[in-house]
């Protein structure tokens, strides 16, 4: 049964749940684990179809990750689901030794990433998981932008061998892809071309970056290029550098601390290979807060307007420091 693309706003975690259930259909070695959040993470869809391959461990996240290690070491392909805060925070050491160090084919489906989960507040709003998982050797970090890409990311994860951390979100999120994309590809998609500035987003910030680009064009006549980074690590630097080479200035946007997140990943590549001003939209040295998901996003400036405003600030710097790419043909 071919998967159905969603056109109305849908949570990315639903894409995970649907794809996981479909994976169960096509692959006998897929098993799923959850820590008493199966409805929230949507792993329940798998659990209902394949009860004999579904293990709800209760509120015991550490145990879940180490169990997945044992299952994978014995030939299964485990998908572990819980909230991002517990997947990356509570069980970091278990993920580190049992999964990443062992290079095991375990997939962590971390839902409710970022502040957009809303009312539960700071204790649940995981804003440093991308940093933690980027720092972990051998771990691939995936953050899909909408339901359709989340479905593809999950389906495609079965085809890959390395350990993977996949971050999904709670709220219904507008679509960025009209259909379920064929592939994640390099993990960096150019969604909109432009010559003046690169807006580089991940997850829930990608559709906002597209909106920001519209408003920059309408209000300032600025042609912004929009990149969706769905694989934050390893970051496909060629696509990023190509865009930076063209525009000479960028804004990154993520629902995460700017420390260790997408901003740092892009700045690292740029600093070494094509230094240009890169401004960041994301959380500073602060924890989350209670409110509706949308209110929380606004509180931290994680909006289309927030991105557009940062872009305007960044563009001021562009004429001062802009110069040809370090390694480009123009340099000689």
């Amino acid at each position: 049964m071919p998967a159905e693309a969603k056109t109305e706003p849908t949570p990315t975690r639903a894409g995970y749940g649907d794809a996981l259930a479909d994976l169960g259909e096509s692959h006998d070695d897929v098993v799923a684990l959850d820590a008493d959040l199966a409805v929230s993470t949507q792993a329940i869809k798998f659990g209902k179809k394949f009860p004999e391959r579904f293990f709800n461990v209760g509120a015991a996240e550490a145990n879940m990750m180490s169990m997945a290690c044992g299952l994978a070491a014995t030939g299964k392909v485990p998908y572990c689901s819980t909230f991002a805060v517990f997947a990356a925070g509570r069980a970091y050491d278990q993920v580190r030794l049992g999964i990443a160090h062992n290079e095991l084919k375990v997939r962590i489906g971390a839902s409710h990433g970022g502040v957009s989960l809303g009312e539960d507040g700071a204790s649940h709003q995981m804003i440093e998981d991308i940093a933690l998982m980027r720092a972990m050797p051998r771990m691939t970090v995936v953050v899909p932008a909408d339901y359709n890409q989340a479905y593809r990311a999950t389906a495609e994860s079965y085809e890959r061998d390395e350990p993977m951390y996949m971050r999904f979100g709670r709220p219904a999120t507008p679509g960025v892809y009209d259909d379920i994309p064929e592939t994640l590809g390099t993990g960096v998609d150019v969604l909109r071309e432009g010559k003046d500035i690169s807006l580089i987003g991940t997850g829930h910030m990608v559709w906002r970056a597209l909106e920001a680009a519209e408003s920059l064009e309408a209000e300032d006549g600025v042609e912004a290029e929009v990149l969706n980074v769905s694989i934050v690590k390893p970051l496909h630097s060629e696509t990023v550098l190509e865009s930076l080479g063209k525009t000479g200035v960028a804004v990154t946007a993520e629902e995460h601390r700017v420390v260790g997140g997408l901003a740092d990943a892009v700045r690292q590549v740029a600093a070494e290979q094509h230094p240009v001003p890169i401004f960041a939209v994301g959380l500073g040295d602060e924890f989350g807060i209670s409110g509706t998901g949308e209110a929380c996003m606004e509180h931290f400036g994680l909006t289309a307007r927030g991105i557009a405003d940062r872009a305007r600030e960044a563009l001021v710097l562009k004429p001062i420091v802009s110069r040809p790419p370090l390694f480009g043909p123009e340099w000689t």
Binding site: A62, M67, C69, G70, G75, D93, L97, G98, N102
Partner: peptide, 24 residues
């Protein structure tokens, strides 16, 4: 069979291995 060294994780790994063997 599995890397260890962080106390407390081993028995969970055993449970996972046991379940995988049962599935097989």
């Amino acid at each position: 069979e599995v890397s260890t060294g962080s106390l407390g994780q081993g028995l969970s790994m055993c449970v996972g291995i046991g379940l995988a063997l049962r599935l097989d």
